[in-house]
Design a binder for these strands. Structure first.
Lengths: 152, 152
DNA sequence: TCTAAATAGTTTAAACTTGAAATATGTTCC
DNA sequence: GGAACATATTTCAAGTTTAAACTATTTAGA
């Protein structure tokens, strides 16, 4: 926050980075959510929907790890997508504790209809940076995300 | 999102950027929240607390713009901080619709005791990147955040 | 085998966030 | 001055998230 040296050079740099990360992410998120709304889905619903569309059937636990939310939350999101008829649960035969979640035919159809449009909007938003900048930013964010993942 | 070209080079780049931004931010946020918990505050409470500590008295509306939440949410957060005795509301004399929020003496005290520690933790987390990388990343995030801010 | 521990998923209560409606105050313009 | 509109904040209902408790199933060790 601010440009004055309050906590030492390193700390000021880190704090400023954290603020900018939170802001950029919140702003991007808000715009993405507004786009997703057009398809009648909330952002977390879309995240699950997209993961299933791209990666196919997943267990509840895998979904949680993929979109970084807790198990209880996955249950609610999948409940809501199930109510819309977009996904279905199947209990695994090998391990009857496990539930596989997958898109229904209707879900697959919507995914094909909708994701291309969403991708275009995201591309448009990202284009406020040059491709070179996007590549650089992607690389740095990947490094940051991976390094932090295992810290507790 | 995988590495295959599904939606064209530009779109794949943008989608991948978005995923990495969301992940890095969520992970950083989770770790920051865990640190903040030690001080008995939630993350949004801490965001308001910090803004007031660094910038002094602000109106409810200014706080919302600063930490990117809606007015209704600011009301609740300030309510909770007020219950803890950390902030107080004062109605403005120039414009009686306006409410100024500021740290109490107790709030100031806690801020001094606590923020240095939090800054150290954030610095530690950020140190998974070199200073050079932090500066680069900060610059790119700033550009992205500013450019997106005014898009609707 | 049988008990204990581990794992997968769901349920629940509490906290947070939003958007819309409501209240109070201020500003503009006739 | 007064009507219409704008602004600052709060209230409210609905949806999302989390952590902890709970159920069901599987695995490991005595």
């Amino acid at each position: 926050m601010g440009t004055t040296k309050q906590y030492g050079r390193k700390a000021d740099l880190a704090l400023s980075l954290w603020v900018k990360l939170a802001r950029a992410s919140a702003t991007f998120s808000r715009l993405s959510a507004k786009d997703i709304e057009r398809y009648g889905l909330t952002q977390p619903q879309f995240a699950v929907f997209e993961a299933l569309g791209h990666l196919g059937s997943m267990t509840t636990g895998e979904i949680g790890k993929k979109i970084l939310v807790t198990g209880g939350c996955v249950t609610v999101i999948v409940d809501n997508l199930e109510k819309e008829g977009l996904v279905e649960r199947t209990r695994s035969n090998e391990d009857r504790r496990v539930i596989q979640v997958q898109l229904t035919a209707k879900g697959e159809q919507l995914f094909r209809d909708v994701f291309q449009q969403h991708a275009e909007r995201i591309t448009e938003l990202a284009s406020v940076l040059t491709e070179e900048e996007q590549i650089q930013l992607s690389g740095l964010l990947k490094k940051l995300g991976l390094a932090l993942k295992d810290i507790h």
